[in-house]
Design a protein around this nucleic acid. Sequence first.
RNA 1: GGUCCGGUAGCUCAGUUGGAUAGAGCAUCAGCCUUCUAAGCUGAGGGUCAUUGGUUCGAAUCCAAUCCGGAUCACCA
Length: 584
Amino acid sequence: MNIVNHNKVKAQLAAIIGAAIQRTGAEEQEQDIYNAIGFPPDANLGHYTYPCFTLSKKLRSAPNKIAGQIAKEVPTDAVVEGVQAAGPYVNFKLTGSFLGTATCDDVLSGKMFERELVQAPPKTMVEYSQPNTHKELHVGHMRNLCLGDALIKLHRYCGYDIISATFPGDVGTHVAKCLWYLKYHNTVPVPEHNKGAWLGTMYSKGHLKLESELGTPAEDENRKQLSEILTQLEHQKGEFYDLWKETKEWSVELMNQVYDWAGVHFDAWYWESDVDVSSVALAKKYHEKGVFIESQGTVGVDLSAYGLGFCMLLKSDGHGLYATKDVELARRKFEDYKIEKSVYVVDKRQAHHFAQVFKVLELMGFENAKNCYHLQYDYVELPDGAMSSRKGNIVPIMDLIDQMHETVKRDYLDKYVGEWEQSEIDNTADIISKGAIKYGMIKIDPSRKIVFDMKEWLKIDGDSGPYLQYTYARINSLTKKLADEVTAQPDWATMNEDIEKQVMVKLSEFNNVVVNACMESKPNVLCVYLYELCKLYNNFYNVLSIKRTEDEVLKSTRLALSKCVAIALKKGLELVGIPVPERM
RNA sequence: GGUCCGGUAGCUCAGUUGGAUAGAGCAUCAGCCUUCUAAGCUGAGGGUCAUUGGUUCGAAUCCAAUCCGGAUCACCA
């Protein structure tokens, strides 16, 4: 797997620098030059820079001297407008016509977004969103959903064949606790709507009641009842099995509601109940083979040699555990879809679990164990600590969505009542809510914790999704208003203002940023880029009025550049799952 | 205690993978709408990049140690 030199501007510049280096009597690989090209800290110095440190080491000569020699050998032409050695750096200013043809034309035609970026990427499955049924979805699940979805879109853009997968937990003690409370203690009738969220409160109440009755006379009876429920679920018959089937659908309805909102789709749905039986059988088989050993009445693998402790796979009662299921599932994924790589988007608290599972797979002789990756991210917590459905201190996912929707409407869209169709107002509020929530989740580096505070989240100015959407909508309305009065053909050679060129240079980096975000599994770097692009554009927009530009060609070119920004913004936001409104 | 993650402006975060004078947003202060959308733009103040040492032309970035915060380490998922 190789990353292609897809950046036309850098490739051309690397060739020019390479030729200049040759004229000084030295030699440097064009690939190395391409990789070394960067940006000066201040745009006044130049658009691109070539640092001479590596060449300096090679030639045993001062980098400042080499920079001066190279600068002298670069002629100004149709590509390079100015060259300046500044200390150990050679700074380049490029012509508007070159930047325009190498970047903007491709943005306008769409070719920019069809370039080959990565050679021979492996067929990959990305598993994300592993919510439990019978519990309520909260804002923590939202981060996982946004992150996983963005990663999938980034990978597909880079040419990966991606299978998206989800692994909901529909069995286990949490289900039993929920059904137990529902059957024996709940006095409230089942609501007509939002049954999934309501079911989550049944779980929470059940858990708390069981907890509070530990050590009381009720404990024994509770234990018996729970055990009966689990037995029925295991044998797939009885009233609790029927109740499980019915209530599971309520949770699925909630999941689908959230997935529809987020616009995500899963190619594969793996239910925990699907691998329950087969995973135990697999564990028994490897126990017989002698790969898994017995310890204190349980079966598992001693991984202490790898610093991973003991990985239990069969409890003393013969039941499997989470790790047992993941071992079976890992195997099944490669078989079902003929994938070459398997990625798990799961928060960092599972790091130990996955390290154990992957090591167990390796010891089982499963060759693809080395192609399994746990992408760990830090989770979402509340100002007063971690969220826990057990304790009931969570922010439900639909609360965030609903409150954001209301806030956007009240604070920003009320002024359009009467002017716009109500349906457009609702639809726009929906789009902006998605921008605010998804951008908020994705813009933070995955390895950092998010402390969720609803009040802060509902403030949507500055570096936010709606800021990017606003920039798009603004360009869109500009384009519409000027459509009739701008008729001249654009000519990139008219782009002479610094700010215009800075926008062009920024646009030229689009694919580099996306590849980076993809390879590092850090969609936030794309957010940073899009935000910077907007900053530059809004500066341009404020400084240079397009409408009042007198030169017809210049006016048309400025409008074309604006369109490029809108196109790149829409595409970039799409890659992190955020839609754009036509106006706002 | 072992392992892993984090520590950058009052707060929330970037920092082009080792490069030039460390940057944004929020908050504070000062400006910019007889309209290409002010959800915007410009400017000001605000820093011991947790600490100490090391590696080299060069460190917020790499290495080591220490401090602080968090996660995790056998019958939950």
